[in-house]
Amino acid sequence: MTGRHTPDRLARAALTRIADPGDEHVGRWLRRHGSVATLAMITGDDALPGISDRRTAGYRVRRERADPENDLRAAAALGCRFVCPGDEEWPAQLDDLGDRRPIGLWVRGRPGLRMWSLRSVAVVGARACDSYGTHVAATLAGDLAEAGWTVVSGAAYGIDAAAHRGALAAGGPTSAVVASGTDVPYPPGHAELIGRIAEQGLVVGELPPGAHPTRGRFVLRNRVIAALTRGTVVVEAQLRSGSLVTARWARELGRVTMGVPGPVTSGLSCGVHELLRGEAQLVTDAADVIELVGSVGEDLAPARHGPVLPRDLLAPPAAAVLEALPGRGSRSARRIAEEAGRGLDETLSRLHELRALGFVQRDGPDWRLTPGPPTPPG
């Protein structure tokens, strides 16, 4: 052990400098040989099994920059920690990624990553979203957070930002999985937002301090978002949206894949609608999401129905008599009885009942509907 860091922790920290996130070759070596032996293989001079000379050269160039002691010190100074497989804080669901499991995660924020990930939902979508998507994402995330679910997203422009802001506004938990070092705000315009997430929640990344994102790293971090959560909700997405990559990862990992439908005339919802034509579940609010990702039989969404009208509460015989009255004008009790298929005595009894409830009124010897909503007399 060097200082307070185990050889495994130091080796894994070094490997986050050398290997790209999701590198299956490194993941396979880690599984077979462990982190210390894997680092020795990569930093040595011998040929590496199963990979090209070009990839080997890439590892060997990057090994010159690997200084795990310095990275761990820098992380600690930033209030960041390095969480490894086997740590108490490590979320076991990440192991579902197999050889593409993160080497380790750099975590910024006070809450425990494992506990916050136990009840978590990813809310992702288009960067170039419209007001509909922003409203839906913020409302959905806020309601999920109020219900005690951690909202996970990628801190990007558009739907990601709306989801994080919705959870923050509700005073609830949210985690941002970034494609850079947790101390490098990206996009730069979200420096304040990412800072707020770090103060109130968690900022999580696979890259060490100071590392900058690349196009490929944005795609690769989506697998972590999918694996970390119980399900992924796509709010708005075009047909080539990166958020669909997250949804595909969620499906492959056996997580719940969900989509919020949008206008059929909007190109921003085309990707979501394609998901919904496949195996994705249609959701419209937090209750729908929680029913799908929550405990079976316990987190059920409320039954959906239209507004209850006063006439809906009438007993069937009274309702039949009420239906027999004309929309305009009046009708005799005998004619009403014929229309309702009831006896005259029963019809008269029901008419007086309906009068007491404010549905009908006398019109000389006949009966007519009361104008406007029913208002009981007296």
Score class of each variant (00 low, 15 high):
Gly58Ala: 04
Thr43Glu: 15
Ala126Gly: 02
Arg114His: 13
Asp53Ser: 14
Val107Ser: 05
Arg65Cys: 11
Gly112His: 12
Arg108Ala: 03
Pro85Met: 00
Arg62Gly: 10
His135Glu: 14
Ala75Tyr: 01
Val107Lys: 00
Gly50Arg: 01
Leu105Glu: 01
Cys84Leu: 15
Arg101Ser: 11
Ile103Lys: 02
Asp53Arg: 13
Ala74His: 14
Ser120Arg: 08
Pro111Asn: 10
Asp96Ala: 15
Leu72Glu: 09
Leu105Gly: 10
Gly58Ile: 06
Thr56Asn: 12
Ser52Cys: 04
Val107Ile: 10
Arg100Cys: 07
Glu69Ser: 12
Asp130Gln: 03
Ala126Ser: 15
Arg101Asn: 12
Leu94Cys: 03
Arg81Met: 02
Cys129Pro: 01
Leu105Phe: 08
Asp99Pro: 10
Arg73Met: 14
Arg63Asn: 06
Trp90Val: 08
Thr56Leu: 07
Leu78Thr: 06
Val121Arg: 03
Gly104Thr: 08
Tyr132His: 12
Asp130Met: 00
Asp45His: 13
Arg108Met: 06
Arg81Ser: 08
Asp45Phe: 04
Gly125Met: 07
Pro91Ile: 04
Ala66Leu: 01
Glu89Cys: 00
Glu69Arg: 14
Asp67Phe: 11
Ser117Leu: 11
Leu97Ile: 07
Ser52Ala: 05
Trp116Gly: 06
Glu64Ala: 15
Pro91Gly: 03
Arg81Tyr: 02
Ala40Lys: 09
Gly98Asp: 02
Gly50Leu: 01
Thr134Gln: 14
Cys80Trp: 01
Arg101Gly: 05
Ala74Val: 13
Ala66Phe: 00
Arg54Gln: 13
Gly133Pro: 07
Asp71Lys: 01
Ile42Arg: 02
Arg110Lys: 09
Val121Gly: 11
Pro102Asp: 03
Glu89Arg: 07
Arg65Asn: 12
Gly133Ile: 07
Asp53Ala: 12
Gly125His: 00
Asn70Tyr: 13
Asp87His: 00
Gly98Gln: 04
Ala74Met: 15
Val121Pro: 11
Leu72Lys: 07
Arg73Ile: 14
